[in-house]
């Protein structure tokens, strides 16, 4: 059965972070269940940190960007397989 995929995109050009601070664990790992309000990554642009929320219920399928990599506005960051695990 084909799964629906939700793609999370960056709202702004900046730097992609998988955790909320340099010493913290990644906010999510592939295979993890996520809810709409969950923060899945952070984007830093011009010293302002934006929390990126999942927006959907599902499972983290793929993280498309490496930690601390630059991202463009509207660039795909993560894929979420929709639905309960």
């Amino acid at each position: 059965m084909e799964k629906n995929i939700h793609t999370i995109i960056s709202p702004v050009m900046g730097t992609f972070y998988r955790s909320s601070s340099p010493d913290a664990l990644p906010l999510v790992e592939p295979g993890q269940s996520v809810k709409p309000e969950d923060v899945v990554c952070m984007i830093e642009s011009m010293k302002i940190f934006t929390e990126i929320r999942c927006g959907q219920t599902g499972v983290v399928k793929k993280i498309l960007v490496k930690n601390e990599e630059p991202v463009m506005k509207n660039q795909a960051l993560m894929e979420i397989a929709l639905g309960e695990k």
Partner: peptide, 14 residues
């Protein structure tokens, strides 16, 4: 500043 007053002063690099 490179920020957008019409979008809650979001950064506007480019």
């Amino acid at each position: 500043n490179a920020s957008d007053p019409t979008d809650n002063f979001m950064p506007s690099p480019g």
